[in-house]
Amino acid sequence: MFDRFTDPARRAVMRAGILTMNAGRTSLATDLLLLGLAEEHPMPHLPDPAALRPHIDTGRTRELLAAIGIDVEEVRRRTRHGLDDPRLWRLERSRVAFLRVTLSGPMGVLPLQMHARKAIEVALWKPGPVTGERLLWGLLADAANGSAAILREAGADVRELVRVAGIPVRRATSK
């Protein structure tokens, strides 16, 4: 599935997988897909990752280790060097269970939660390359996944993000 992804979009999904595993989660959700996108593919009107983090559960490892003087990011840089190599990651649909999509890499295999899978499916829907804007489209296409709420909480203008991502908006018609 990654063959249609641009390099920044692929890195965003890979980063979301790393964030998921760092948080101790067992499946990739849309909140970390959104954070991965913000970290790897900044775009106009998308909040800075630092503004998004307080609204996303990324685990408490950083805080707990910082309390005893350990910089968890430095430890990760030293021990997980090379994990962001795109050749080591795969995004695949199960041949048996068609709705199951997994992200696999050097740290393990993560199934995508339903809403994250739907975001990827929307990004892949149109022909052509999957860009960061298309991933944003996938995240904002389903109001039930919480991405728009996280963006609003972080101070983003969601209407402007919809415009930047090129998401078609259905206009109300008068009778």
Rank of each mutant, 00 (worst) to 15 (best):
D3P: 08
R4Y: 00
R4P: 02
T6K: 05
P8V: 03
R10H: 12
R10E: 08
R10F: 06
A12S: 13
M14G: 03
A16L: 02
G17A: 11
G17D: 05
I18T: 13
L19F: 02
A23M: 09
A23S: 15
R25M: 15
T26Y: 06
L28K: 00
T30M: 14
T30D: 11
L32E: 10
L33R: 00
L34A: 02
H41N: 09
P42L: 00
P42F: 02
P42G: 00
P44E: 06
H45E: 05
H45R: 14
A50P: 05
A50E: 15
L52T: 01
P54C: 12
H55G: 04
I56S: 01
I56P: 05
G59Y: 01
R60Q: 09
T61K: 09
L65I: 04
A66Y: 09
A67C: 10
G69E: 08
I70H: 06
D71I: 00
R76W: 09
R78F: 06
R78S: 06
H81S: 10
G82F: 04
L83N: 09
D84A: 10
D84R: 11
D85R: 14
D85T: 08
D85S: 10
R93F: 04
R93Q: 13
S94C: 12
S94T: 13
F98N: 03
R100A: 07
S104W: 12
M107E: 13
G108A: 04
G108P: 07
V109W: 11
L110A: 10
P111D: 15
P111N: 14
L112K: 01
Q113A: 13
Q113F: 05
R117T: 14
K118E: 11
K118R: 13
K118A: 11
A119F: 07
A119Y: 07
V122M: 03
A123H: 11
A123I: 00
A123C: 12
L124V: 03
P127Q: 14
P129G: 12
P129A: 05
V130D: 10
V130K: 10
E133C: 15
E133L: 14
R134N: 03
R134I: 00
L136K: 11
L136Y: 02
L136Q: 03
W137N: 15
G138Q: 03
L139V: 01
A141C: 14
A141N: 14
D142E: 06
D142Y: 01
A143E: 12
A144M: 10
A144Y: 02
G146N: 01
S147L: 09
S147G: 07
A148Q: 05
A149I: 08
A149N: 10
A154R: 02
D157T: 00
V158W: 00
V162A: 05
G166I: 03
V169L: 09
V169F: 02
V169Y: 00
R171A: 06
A172N: 10
T173P: 13
S174F: 04
S174C: 10
K175S: 15
